[in-house]
Lab assay of single mutants.
Amino acid sequence: MLDDRARMEAAKKEKVEQILAEFQLQEEDLKKVMRRMQKEMDRGLRLETHEEASVKMLPTYVRSTPEGSEVGDFLSLDLGGTNFRVMLVKVGEGEEGQWSVKTKHQMYSIPEDAMTGTAEMLFDYISECISDFLDKHQMKHKKLPLGFTFSFPVRHEDIDKGILLNWTKGFKASGAEGNNVVGLLRDAIKRRGDFEMDVVAMVNDTVATMISCYYEDHQCEVGMIVGTGCNACYMEEMQNVELVEGDEGRMCVNTEWGAFGDSGELDEFLLEYDRLVDESSANPGQQLYEKLIGGKYMGELVRLVLLRLVDENLLFHGEASEQLRTRGAFETRFVSQVESDTGDRKQIYNILSTLGLRPSTTDCDIVRRACESVSTRAAHMCSAGLAGVINRMRESRSEDVMRITVGVDGSVYKLHPSFKERFHASVRRLTPSCEITFIESEEGSGRGAALVSAVACKKACMLGQ
């Protein structure tokens, strides 16, 4: 009897593995994704193909990295998701002549009506938060230079001027797309009239992360975010950046690689679950690469896999709870928690219980395998993109072996128990001629924006502006 049951459990697990095998990517698959990513990057950089390229390769006008001589107080704003952060950054000489960066910050959550109302409502709310922060720190009387981390696709015309191309991540505030974001912020500050600010720089969160990590390690020339969304930036040779005049030196390019796949480059790798996630998203047909990796989508992918296993009578005796059938019910943090389970399955059992399920031991094991399959594919897909960037940098610099540091931020990278190990191992397999160091950014977005502002202020002083 026991043997029969054991055989049935083994057969069930084997069927589960057959279904989950769809998520496995072979090294040849990853090399294919990497080569296609490089081709799209090239198209994004070139003037004649930029418009139709899915990977936009947006110039950021960040050319210099901090040298350690900029000092002063800077205000930093960070808008990239449902939370908005205001930070005071003091850049100065530390002990023994070292450079020191001290920060104080406060988080504000953005109400739904500000995210989806008008641009005026959104930026009025942001300036209200700045006003509140300055009151708390008794700094209303000071006109501070301000660095703005704005983590949406922007076409820069200068370091302090950028046109919002399109909202992502659930934002829909009308009247912002096609307009200068810094102008919208300046107008809102003017409307309030109770404080003055000098907006000197606007950067993407990947750029802010790279600059913040450069402060720790001067070989950091790539910034990457794996959180709600997924994106990367890197220092490109100016001669390859056709959208900006000049051939000397390097400029940081914001790849906006989340949109890779929007022209069909990933079609052969998309599964039924991916198509369902895409169809029910706020932007169907867009940001397809990001939807395979980002935390906004990972939990939902797992939920759809679990429903398939229920329908195949391989999980929960073929019956799903009402909660499990509800879109968004299986949160991405559950994926991390399930994979963090120590082996007694308590954590998995508790999560499934909150979803109205009474799982068996085998159910718990199957749910864990589903989570591992989805998150491992995410790590491997992400590795193909980064390997594409790094191999490109090595080739354009004609280096036999390139040493490089990548600064990384984002909740999936930082909080998932195995993502970074799987990701690092896969990147290294795909970049055999590179020695890569990964560092995690601390308060990256805010500190990085302030350091970019410090560079901009120093330049302005040198130019006598």
Rank of each mutant, 00 (worst) to 15 (best):
D3G: 12
D4M: 03
A6T: 09
R7L: 08
A11T: 15
A11E: 10
K12W: 13
K15N: 11
K15H: 04
E17H: 07
E17Q: 14
E17L: 05
Q18A: 12
L20N: 00
F23E: 00
Q24H: 15
Q26L: 07
E27K: 13
E27R: 02
E28C: 04
E28T: 02
E28F: 15
E28G: 11
L30Y: 03
M34L: 06
R36H: 07
R36F: 10
M37I: 13
Q38G: 07
K39W: 08
M41T: 06
M41R: 01
D42C: 13
R43I: 06
G44Q: 02
G44K: 01
R46G: 13
R46T: 08
L47K: 14
T49A: 04
E51F: 07
E52V: 07
E52S: 12
A53Y: 01
M57T: 00
P59S: 06
T60M: 07
T60L: 04
T60I: 07
Y61M: 03
R63P: 00
T65M: 11
P66A: 13
E67N: 09
E67Y: 09
S69G: 11
S69R: 06
E70Q: 07
E70A: 11
G72E: 05
D73I: 01
F74R: 01
L75F: 03
L75V: 08
L75I: 03
L77N: 04
D78M: 07
L79G: 11
F84Y: 05
R85H: 13
V86R: 02
M87S: 05
M87W: 15
M87P: 05
L88W: 12
L88D: 07
V89Y: 04
K90M: 06
K90T: 11
V91H: 08
V91R: 04
G92Y: 05
E93Y: 15
G97D: 07
G97W: 04
T103V: 08
T103L: 08
K104D: 10
M107W: 09
M107N: 13
E112K: 15
E112M: 07
E112P: 08
A114L: 14
M115R: 14
M115C: 13
T116Q: 15
G117Y: 09
G117N: 12
A119V: 08
M121L: 08
D124K: 01
D124C: 05
D124S: 05
D124H: 03
Y125S: 09
Y125F: 15
E128P: 02
I130M: 07
D135A: 11
K136E: 06
M139F: 12
M139Q: 07
K140W: 07
K140Q: 15
K140E: 04
H141M: 08
K142E: 12
P145K: 14
S151W: 03
V154A: 11
E157V: 12
D158V: 10
D158G: 09
I159A: 09
G162K: 13
I163C: 14
L164S: 15
L164E: 13
T168Q: 09
T168V: 08
K169R: 11
K169Q: 03
G170A: 14
F171H: 10
F171T: 08
G175A: 07
G175D: 12
G175C: 05
E177N: 10
E177G: 07
G178I: 07
N179I: 14
N180G: 10
V181K: 05
G183Q: 15
L185R: 01
R186M: 14
R186Q: 15
D187F: 00
A188G: 08
I189R: 03
K190S: 12
K190R: 09
R191P: 01
R191D: 05
R192W: 03
R192M: 05
R192L: 08
R192H: 11
D194E: 07
D194G: 09
F195Q: 08
M202F: 11
N204F: 06
D205N: 15
T206F: 02
V207E: 02
V207R: 01
A208W: 14
T209V: 05
T209G: 01
G223M: 02
G227K: 00
G229Q: 14
G229T: 14
G229L: 06
C230E: 01
N231T: 12
E236F: 04
E236G: 00
E237P: 09
E237G: 08
V241L: 08
E242A: 04
E245H: 15
D247M: 06
D247A: 06
E248G: 06
G249A: 00
G249R: 03
G249P: 00
N254S: 11
N254A: 08
W257L: 07
F260I: 06
F260Y: 13
G261P: 01
D262N: 11
G264H: 13
D267G: 07
D267L: 02
D267H: 09
E268C: 10
E268T: 14
E268G: 04
L270H: 13
E272H: 14
R275H: 09
L276H: 14
L276S: 12
S281Q: 05
S281K: 00
S281D: 12
N283H: 09
P284A: 09
P284Q: 10
Q286E: 11
Q286P: 03
Y289L: 09
Y289Q: 07
E290D: 14
E290K: 04
E290T: 08
E290V: 04
L292F: 12
L292V: 15
L292C: 10
I293G: 06
G294N: 04
G294P: 04
G295N: 11
G295W: 14
K296C: 14
M298H: 07
M298A: 11
M298R: 02
L301H: 03
L304M: 12
L306V: 10
L307P: 01
L307C: 07
L309E: 00
L309N: 02
V310I: 08
V310L: 05
V310T: 08
N313P: 00
L314K: 06
F316L: 11
G318W: 04
E319L: 11
S321K: 12
E322R: 10
Q323M: 10
L324D: 01
L324S: 03
L324T: 03
G328K: 04
G328H: 14
A329S: 06
A329L: 06
F330Q: 01
F330W: 12
E331H: 15
E331V: 13
E331S: 13
T332K: 03
T332E: 10
T332D: 10
F334R: 10
F334T: 11
V335R: 00
V335L: 09
V338T: 03
S340H: 06
S340I: 12
S340M: 11
G343E: 06
D344G: 08
D344M: 05
R345Q: 15
K346M: 06
I348A: 14
Y349K: 07
Y349F: 12
Y349A: 09
Y349V: 13
Y349T: 09
N350G: 06
I351E: 09
I351G: 05
L352F: 09
L352K: 00
S353F: 10
S353I: 07
L355C: 04
L355F: 09
R358W: 04
P359G: 09
P359S: 03
S360L: 06
T361M: 07
T362L: 07
T362S: 09
D363E: 06
D365N: 13
R368W: 12
R369S: 11
R369K: 08
A370Q: 01
C371L: 02
S373Y: 04
V374R: 00
S375T: 12
R377H: 00
R377P: 00
A379D: 01
C382H: 03
C382D: 01
S383V: 01
G385V: 13
L386G: 01
L386R: 00
A387K: 01
A387M: 01
G388Y: 01
N391W: 13
R394D: 06
S396K: 15
S398P: 04
D400M: 09
V401P: 09
M402C: 11
T405L: 03
V406G: 01
V406K: 01
G407M: 02
D409E: 11
D409Q: 06
S411M: 15
V412E: 01
V412N: 01
K414Y: 00
K414Q: 04
L415T: 10
L415S: 09
H416I: 06
H416K: 00
H416W: 11
P417V: 10
P417N: 08
S418Y: 03
R422M: 09
R422V: 15
R422H: 05
F423R: 00
F423W: 01
S426Q: 15
L430W: 03
L430K: 00
T431I: 12
E435C: 06
T437C: 14
I439W: 07
I439G: 04
E440V: 07
E440Q: 00
S441P: 04
S441T: 05
S441K: 08
E442R: 04
G444Q: 13
A449E: 07
V452D: 04
A454Q: 13
V455M: 15
A456C: 13
K458P: 03
K458Y: 07
C461T: 10
M462R: 11
